[in-house]
């Protein structure tokens, strides 16, 4: 690993100031991506800015009106253990327990998972499905970006020079809503998604009133498929509706072949994972 300087600012303005003065600096939260990338030479840094000392980035708050705020540096294990998240956002608690293993979850943050912008990122399809937004701070002030617009290419995101992710905001789900994320991995843990599907549905009187579906590892960025969710709205809750939505998700996917799976296999899995995730989400919605 090449030598770098390290600093841990205590406030957001300090961090932004450092980023403005040293645009090549790298932000460190959990480090489970960054340190691996620095060690392998895939990324370089002259300065590493540890953002974990900034209180706002460690916030994990729920307000029934404002929704859930996940500070950009909050590690997964805090989400998994959080009682409100377990009860109101069970899919999120699950995802946080599936990213890496126990030790990785002791460090890795959802914010980092988002900013790393891997096509296969586990948390992003679910965040998209939940209608989450990213709160960004920079020299020009603050702005909010929908999660589906955050990633721009493999490893690239919306953050402009001098900007950093402050938090992820997830709106409180409407009554009778349910969400789920499912991924396919050949092992049972410690694996990268071959395909992942994040879904969220709202049901009233046996009919879908809202639905959002997104996929991972099937495109250069996590893929929001509005048409798949739209196809559910107005439909009665029935296997045919789920299957139809899954088929739309599948046709939107444009996966590649690599060491984790062939394009044909990924394409096949899109429909399976989407349908299965919808089945779980429907059950949760009906229980809420």
């Amino acid at each position: 690993m090449k030598a770098f300087d390290y600093t841990a600012p205590a406030t957001l303005p300090e961090a932004v100031g450092l980023l403005v003065s040293q645009p090549s600096a790298r932000l460190l939260a959990g480090g489970t991506d960054l340190i691996v990338q620095l060690r392998s030479g895939r990324k370089e840094a002259d300065l590493v800015i540890d953002i974990k000392k900034i209180p706002e980035l460690n916030a994990l708050d729920f307000d029934p009106i404002a929704g859930l705020t996940i500070g950009a540096a909050v590690p997964c294990y805090r989400l998994t253990a959080h009682l409100v998240i377990q009860s109101h956002f069970p899919a999120l608690a699950e995802v946080a327990s599936w990213i890496g293993g126990t030790q990785i979850q002791g460090r890795a943050s959802i914010g980092g998972n988002l900013c790393n912008a891997a096509p296969s990122a586990d948390s992003i399809p679910l965040l998209i499905a939940l209608g989450a937004t990213a709160l960004i701070a920079g020299p020009g002030g603050r702005r909010t970006v929908a999660i589906e617009d955050f990633c721009t290419a493999p490893g690239r995101n919306q953050l402009a020079s001098g900007e950093l992710l402050v938090s992820i905001q997830i709106p409180t789900p409407a009554p009778h809503s349910g969400a789920a994320y499912l991924r396919f991995i050949p092992r049972n843990e410690m694996d990268i998604a071959v395909v992942g599907a994040g879904v969220a549905v709202t049901i009233a009187d046996g009919v879908f009133t809202a639905a959002r579906i997104a996929l991972s590892a099937v495109a250069p960025t996590p893929l929001f498929v509005p048409a798949a969710g739209a196809a559910l709205v107005g439909q009665p809750v029935a296997p045919a509706a789920l299957e139809a939505a899954a088929q739309i998700a599948q046709s939107a996917a444009a996966p590649i072949s690599d060491m984790r799976g062939t394009a044909a296999y990924r394409k096949h899995l899109c429909a399976v994972m989407t349908r299965r995730a919808l089945e779980i989400a429907v059950t949760r919605a009906q229980e809420n």
Binding site: G30, G31, I35, Q103, I104, G106
Partner: peptide
């Protein structure tokens, strides 16, 4: 618990 190889 953490993997100490991924902590500075």
């Amino acid at each position: 618990i953490v993997t100490s190889c991924l902590v500075l």
